[in-house]
Design a protein around this nucleic acid. Structure first.
Length: 269
DNA sequence: ATGCTAACCTGCGCGC
DNA sequence: TGCGCGCAGGTTAGCA
């Protein structure tokens, strides 16, 4: 599910409900996520107050006065604001109960998500991450210079979190289509002008998707339980063997690193 | 350093 | 109906 726009949609939805709220209880129903939920989480969280809701890459950083709750949604996770009294459903793995009778409730069927407790921002999972795609550090010079000599495809390059964070399979496909760049071209053989287009398209598509509340394919819901609406604007993702919306040529599907890639063999070179 | 593979999980749709 | 297979929005560890 969640790429950067979905995580940012979740952050914005959750933020106003948790700021200045004190945690009165923590309920963990299943600790087996991508990494086990820390044994002392309940004890450490109870009685402290949320003071900020940030995002780094696809991690939500929910700051309290004592430290930071770091949440990842994995492939199928969602984080919602609920009445704490509402009965938990299948795969509702944990709640953080707030002093207004509501709670943050985490659901994740595949359990690829995670929950960490941080005493600072220096967590191993946050080290070595590339720049945020919506920041000025993500620009054509940066991509061009970093990509020289790289034999991996430009799509794999864009999806590498050490290069740039937050660009997952959907938006990598979409951005390369919009930029007119073939996803299987070696990253080191893409010109600076073309990287300029890639950068522009990545930023525009991520911003557009955030404005639409993200992309819901199967199970993404925002903090209010509502789907996102960007799926209606996808140009290539999920449209293999259908007509290109620009030139009507049949869209081609290949697999790169075991991920589905769809592109237009005429519009993308 | 770079790059490829397997691994972590559940659910769903499809062909037989 | 049921079953096996392939695939799904992510990311890391481990090995060439």
């Amino acid at each position: 599910m969640p790429e950067l726009p979905e995580v940012e949609t979740t952050r914005r939805g959750v933020e106003p409900h948790i700021l200045d709220r004190t945690i009165t209880d923590v309920v963990v129903r299943d600790r087996r996520l991508r990494w086990p939920i820390p044994d002392d989480l309940e004890q450490v969280l109870k009685g402290t107050k949320f003071v900020a809701a940030r995002r780094r890459a696809k991690y939500l950083l929910l700051d309290t006065r004592r430290g930071t709750l770091m949440v990842h949604l994995g492939m199928s996770g969602s984080l919602r604001i609920m009445d704490a009294s509402s009965p938990p459903l299948f795969h509702d793995h944990w709640d953080v109960v707030l002093d207004d009778g509501r709670c943050l409730r985490y659901n994740d069927p595949r359990r690829f998500g995670s929950l960490h407790w941080l005493q600072s921002d220096n967590h191993p999972l946050l080290d070595h991450l590339g720049p945020e795609p919506l920041s000025s550090a993500f620009n054509a010079d940066y991509l061009y210079n970093l990509s020289r000599g790289r034999k991996a495809s430009v799509k794999q390059f864009l999806m590498d979190g050490k290069v740039v964070v937050g660009v997952g399979n959907i938006y990598a496909n979409e951005a390369l289509f919009m930029a007119g760049v073939r996803p299987d071209r070696a990253a080191g053989r893409v010109s600076k002008d073309r990287y300029q287009r890639v950068v522009e398209r990545v930023k525009a598509i991520l911003q557009g998707a955030i404005a639409q509340g993200g992309t819901t394919l199967r199970d993404f819901v925002n903090s209010d339980g509502q789907p996102g609406y960007f799926a209606q604007q996808l140009q290539v993702y999920g449209r293999a063997n259908q007509a290109c919306r620009i030139c009507a040529v049949t869209l081609k599907e290949i697999r790169q690193n075991n991920r589905s890639t769809v592109f237009c063999p005429k519009c993308q070179r």
